[in-house]
Nucleic acid binder design. Structure first.
Lengths: 342, 342
DNA sequence: CTGAAAGCGCTTACAG
DNA sequence: CTGAAAGCGCTTACAG
């Protein structure tokens, strides 16, 4: 028969349990654990030992209720499946991961109703902010309703220019690709790309045309070949281009999948890549570009960095500073499908 | 100068605000909003209108503090980048999405320390349960420490057989692939696969061998060709197999990427696929299998369903029932790279 | 240096 | 049918 404080049974331990075990008040226990206020060193050690013994983990809900900050953010994506969302999401996770922030992941599946539903749930959980990840670069409608926390849009900008959007400079990316081909001594450059309905396709084509214009040149065929984003289109279009323009010495592709189709077609046609015709892709999707024959030079959109920047901007906004929208350039990743003329 | 209750300024509205605006007590407001207890119809309407007017969203933290349930779960993945985690994650999201559950996403990046850190954070946030998603099928060490909530392991089982693990039947998958080739009348079947260090590679090979044994046959070359998971290995191995065993009439590949390499090599060698040699892959990775020449027959592991089942099992466990580990079969997805002999 | 008290926003018996 | 009170687990002035 003892009156010693006992270790609680199978209940998650609370600060009260720790305080009891250490023989102090909850106020003192709180201060000791948080390193706040003046607590005698020996007392603090006693509290910390008790906490350790009980595997005490402070209840974040209670803390959040008090402080008004939960240390959580919502990540709203429209298609998890899409390969663009994932690196962005990883970048954002990186930006948060170091600190004390946890991330709620919500996939709206491209459905506005579902998105609305998720936003409501997240606000109910009192997230400190929201990141909205789009799956294509066309501007998207801003979140509806009165959102009482900061919001940062990534990849797909908000249609409202007052919102903070972190995006890729696709015009610059198209320019980068063509400037590389020009630097390789190529003059007859064709552009095979995806659906014209995509802003990304139009932007990259615009950048390509601009770079050529600066060099006093135009695209082979005098226009981009818009089609679809897949390999079959790459194969079909490559056949057409080579047949119509036998002088073509380089092809800039709007995606790595298109480029993959182009490579296959050129191989079938017996055209040497990169010697006779250099090929460059877009996306730097490892699974597609890293093991092709030859391995594919491509433009990397630095999506992970995009996500990380979005995370940082959200943090700043939560801390009360105002951010502005930003556009980031891509990066050339050289492999063996492009080569200077000998 | 009025004494009417006013709409609160720029503060997130609380139940007290709603009650004030509706002219009732917070207790009554609470009951009205939650449809609990006896509340006069007209009163409830008044409260609901007030809530609507203020865009009131109940504070989930406060609720969680009271009820002991937060309606959140933690999803612990070891590599977001990996294409296996994503469909599983989507399936889990689906399982939860319908209800009132929000998902914390944590990527441990394959680092045990980081995983430990995430677990602590999640427990601090009082998640109701955890799902642990592995990136390969080899058993993994269970979460360390005393975890006071249910845990379900997916794809990669826990090394502790008492834990609940939801996995893919890779032996069955290998069997499925070879049985399909046998059904197509093939008798000389080779198996080109990934690293022998992967349980997945060994399991699929085992299933393939078993199916052949049932038919009184053995693998061409009497053993699987283990190598790496990429296209180059597929190309190299295909050359070798065809050269050594000119009678081969089918190749079962341990991954779609390997199969892609095999297809390319056979094309270079002038072997007709599927006529002379049928090829089947594994994973059913759309980006790789859906647009190859010919399009690739493959085994789909139903990862999305795996994730959904894991979510359901976690729910059940949270509600107090005991679940058991389960293993799920794959599914044959027919395309044009396999064909019955004419 | 330590602790009693108030309060974050809500729900739930318990009286009226 | 309605409301005053207690309490979920914590932190923060404020006394001692």
């Amino acid at each position: 028969m003892t009156t010693e404080p006992e270790i609680p049974a199978n209940r998650t331990p609370t600060l009260t349990d720790v305080a009891k075990l250490a023989g102090v008040s909850v106020a003192t226990a709180s201060k000791a654990i948080n390193g706040r206020g003046e607590v005698r060193a020996t007392t603090r050690v006693r509290v910390l030992e008790a906490a350790e013994l009980l595997s005490f983990a402070p209840n974040a809900l209670a803390r959040g209720l008090l402080s008004g900050r939960t240390g959580t953010v919502g990540l709203l994506t429209s298609d998890l499946e899409g390969r663009f969302s994932i690196p962005i999401l990883m970048g954002a996770e990186d930006a948060f991961g170091a600190g004390q922030v946890s991330v709620f992941l919500c996939d709206a599946r491209g459905d506005a109703i579902r998105e609305q539903h998720h936003v409501r749930a997240l606000l109910s959980r009192r997230v400190d902010g929201l990141i909205v990840v789009g799956s294509r670069t066309d501007p998207r409608p801003p979140l509806v309703g009165n959102i009482p926390v900061p919001v940062v849009y990534v990849y797909a900008p908000s249609a409202n220019p007052n919102d903070v959007s972190i995006t890729v400079d696709n015009v610059g990316g198209g320019r980068l690709a063509v400037e590389h081909l020009l630097a390789c001594g190529r003059r007859s450059i064709a552009h095979i790309t995806g659906e014209v309905g995509f802003q990304a396709a139009r932007d990259r084509a615009e950048g390509a045309a601009a770079a050529l214009a600066d060099a006093g040149l135009t695209l082979v065929g005098d226009r981009p070949y818009f089609g679809s984003w897949d390999e079959s289109w790459g194969r079909a279009a490559a056949h057409m281009v080579v047949e119509r323009h036998s002088d073509v010495d380089a092809i800039f592709c709007g995606s790595d999948q298109i480029a993959r189709g182009v490579l296959d077609a050129l191989r079938d046609l017996g055209r040497d890549v990169p010697g006779a015709i250099s090929v460059i892709g877009f996306d730097n999707w490892e699974a597609i570009s890293a093991d092709s024959r030859p391995r594919l030079t491509s433009i990397d959109m630095n999506l992970k960095r995009l996500g990380a920047v979005a995370g940082q901007r959200l943090f700043e906004a939560i801390d009360g500073s105002v951010s502005r929208s930003e556009e980031f350039p891509g990066r050339l990743v050289m492999r063996e499908s492009t080569l200077p003329l000998g």
